[in-house]
Design a protein around this nucleic acid. Structure first.
Lengths: 331, 331
DNA sequence: CTGAAAGCGCTTACAG
DNA sequence: CTGAAAGCGCTTACAG
């Protein structure tokens, strides 16, 4: 019933533990004959090295921490799937840290460090200064995933949010749309802020007015706000929302009030989550490659982990395109 | 830059490591004065015991494994959030194992065991016989989450799927609906099977005909299938779907073909994910408490972990209700 | 290419 | 209530 130990393998193979350990970690250092023999026995017995012991002895655990604000957002779940698939390929296991209560960022971070992971994938976008210091002094590599670090020394993987928002807004303006409403989040996220900047740049260049509202993460709250907005303001030509869930929620409210989509109002998202395929009509989106972003971030992290003479980390921008679906007239 | 060790704490506190270890693990065995002193120093230095060393020495890691088929389904992500919040309360950390490729179930399971977790939360519903054996012989407690084990010796947390499906179908029949179409998954899941059975029982009792179709997990594939169905068959009065995403997708196809929802066709889901609040119209649902299910499963697991004289595990059924929204006429 | 030995950072009987 | 010591299951210089 007890798990097989490395001793057992060594015993039945007639070699020392060191050799067994070597076939696992540095197979090239072991003669093929012995290696094969040991490997066969390992397989027979279904031996798996104890992760704690291995981690303790080698100082690397082949596990990485994923720090995120919540799992209930589709974009985050899909990104983690991307992280996972890449992690699996490289032999890493994932440890989850959810930071939903803002108070204990510091506490959480200590936990992350103490868990002796080899690297950290960070999906929370915004942290207090204090925590930024902790991140900076962290003994293992950190990569920001679909998020931005204020700190130049920390790598990140995302799309060029400012640019994509700018381009999209420009394009919509070129199609004759005048009132473009930008819906962002109440809480500050650097990437949302960048999209907002891109939008503003485009609108200002064209001499149009800015229209921006900030919304909660809660659908029922948003609905009230959106309904109020539509009743008290001139209708927008296009609504641009940083989160698909918010955008779709807005679209539904508009339809309930009798507006036709896309004829009266058009809607566009920036995430391209599964939501966008399930809305009615389907949501046109910037096709932010959220799965890919997770995937690439994890590969990047493994490189940083392996790279002894750490080449300074960098911002990686992934390509995006636009998926025209049924919530816009432009397809 | 190096992490503080237990030695450092012991050193500056003027006590032995054993004492430091005790204030962490068995504080009642240490005199209050020394305890307070040690605690203060721990706090000052921000000391966190190394998780690997602790796990290796104590044989419990205060981490549990969560085994799941994919993260991209909203129901799963929301359940994990529930698991997480409960885990945090009890001081457990989560390790993620995603089993999307069916081939290596066995391999995955070995990994789970080798990772020396204290317990396992299992969200994959269906496994091969071989893996069931492995699960049975597992050295740590296992709980099935929103899934069912064929094996009586493994605990589970869910709702009474057969019953809820039966009751719902009965109710819909009592409202005069004749053709009720049940949409389930192509791949076998025990809980979906149970919902199907409940549906069948209700329909047969009432002398009505069964209408069942099986669908893929992929939205574009489903759309083709649903469109074909609606074109070639008499329209159903109600569509019941085991997965919200499938149900909503069906609803969208129906609307595109010109059917009015809920006037021509009604739709109901069994999951009550976020999707159901973002669809247009909003999806009426069995309010399966997916967050709660995760939460309770985790508490149950901690009990099993702590309970020395393991009281045999059991099926826990959580309550459900029905949320009437806009995709049905019955609210 | 292989083995003996030290050590990773903790916990826990065992004495006192 | 506290300390000295063994041990958890591995890995990795160090010899040979």
């Amino acid at each position: 019933m007890d798990q097989t130990k490395i001793y057992d393998i060594a015993g039945t193979a007639g070699v020392s533990l060191a050799t067994v350990s070597r076939v696992l970690n540095h197979p090239e250092k072991v003669k093929k004959a012995t290696r094969d023999k040991v490997l066969r026995i390992i397989k027979d017995k279904g031996y798996k090295p104890n992760a704690n012991a291995r981690g303790l002895a080698s100082r690397h655990s082949t596990t990485v921490a994923v720090v995120l604000p919540t799992l209930t957002r589709a974009s985050i779940a899909e990104t983690i799937q991307g992280i996972h698939d890449s992690a699996k390929k490289f032999g890493y296991t994932l440890r989850l840290f959810v930071n939903n209560e803002k108070e204990d960022e510091r506490e959480l971070w200590s936990e992350v460090i103490a868990s002796s992971v080899d690297g950290i994938l960070f999906m929370n976008d915004e942290m207090s200064k204090e925590v930024y210091q902790l991140i900076e002094n962290t003994p293992v590599p950190v990569v920001f995933v679909n998020a931005l670090s204020k700190n130049k020394n920390i790598g990140s993987v995302s799309i060029d949010n400012e640019e994509c928002s700018y381009e999209l807004t420009k394009y919509l303006i070129s199609k004759g749309n005048k009132k473009i409403l930008f819906v962002t989040t109440e809480s500050y996220y650097a990437i949302n802020e960048q999209m907002l900047q891109g939008y503003k740049r485009a609108v200002n260049e064209s001499g149009l007015k800015e229209f921006v509202i900030q919304s909660s993460g809660k659908i029922p709250v948003n609905e009230v706000q959106f309904e109020k907005y539509l009743k008290e303001n001139e209708k927008p030509d296009v609504v641009l929302g940083v989160r698909d869930s918010m955008t779709i929620s807005f679209m539904n409210v508009a339809q309930k009030l009798g507006y036709k989509v896309p004829d009266d109002i058009q809607f566009m998202g920036f995430q391209n989550t599964r939501y966008s395929e399930l809305s009615y009509p389907k949501l046109s989106c910037i096709s932010r490659p959220i799965y890919e972003i997770g995937n690439v971030a994890m590969s990047k992290l493994t490189e940083l982990i392996k790279d002894e003479n750490k080449t300074g980390p960098s911002k990686t921008f992934l390509n995006y395109s636009i998926v025209w679906r049924d919530s816009t007239k432009n397809n």
